[in-house]
């Protein structure tokens, strides 16, 4: 049965939309793919996926007028936005990937590369399932345990310190923000569409 909520997945040419769309379909929704700024600015539930480099993604969003559309959608309290992986980083204030690049600024977080610690070297990119500690009051993590496994693939991450809102954390070398939610802005550094039932539950919660 198709549920009535509408989901708009932003297509800006970066990232594997098929998996995200399959996950929403599995949950009984009919997601809609769009690169049209007007559709994006008036969406009910907006998904910003993404795999790749931050500077190129921001440039593409700007060239297509999608950056402004997403900001407009965010001001509209009826729109819920979920950034996934690079999508989460793009919602942040800045990233050090390829210099100092300004993001969409919907999350007051700074994105930097993993620090290599001298004592215990870590593998970068951070790839695979890893445990995420959920925040106490969270919409995304309803019915999920305090610690749950999610699938990550990334070399840059948003620091958890100084973030307002509800922040889930993960440790790879040091601690970083694995998920974020505040008001109508949601984000996950991990891929819920690749995280088995834990991820499906999270996507279900986002739409609840």
């Amino acid at each position: 049965m198709t549920q009535r909520k509408t989901i708009t997945v932003v297509d800006y040419g970066m990232g594997n939309l098929w998996s995200v769309i399959s996950a929403f379909r599995f949950l009984g929704f009919s997601p809609h793919i769009s690169s049209d700024p007007i559709e994006i600015s008036t969406a009910e539930n907006l998904i910003l996926p993404g795999v790749g480099a931050f500077p190129l993604a921001m440039k593409t969003l700007r060239e297509r007028g999608i950056d402004i559309a997403i900001k407009k959608a965010a001001e509209n309290r009826n729109t819920r936005i979920l950034g996934i992986c690079l999508g989460m980083q793009l919602l942040g204030a800045t990233s050090t990937e390829g210099g100092q690049v300004i993001g969409l600024g919907l999350i007051p977080g700074v994105v930097t590369k993993f620090n290599q610690s001298k004592n215990k070297p870590i593998k970068v990119p951070h790839v695979g399932f890893n445990l995420v500690r959920r925040p106490k009051n969270s919409r995304l993590f309803v019915n999920l345990p305090d610690m749950a496994d999610f699938y990550f693939v990334h070399s840059y991450r948003m620091l958890a310190e100084g973030l307002d809102g509800h922040v889930a954390t993960c440790v790879h070398g040091d601690q970083f923000a694995a998920a974020y939610e505040n008001d109508n802005i949601f984000a996950t550094q991990f891929h819920p569409e690749k995280s088995q039932t834990n991820g499906l539950a999270l996507l279900q919660n986002f739409l609840r």
Binding site: N143, L144, P145, A148, D149, Q196, T197, N198, L200, A201
Partner: peptide, 10 residues
């Protein structure tokens, strides 16, 4: 190994 909840529990 990573652990995920059974779908029916959700």
């Amino acid at each position: 190994l990573p652990i995920w909840s059974v779908w029916s529990e959700l």
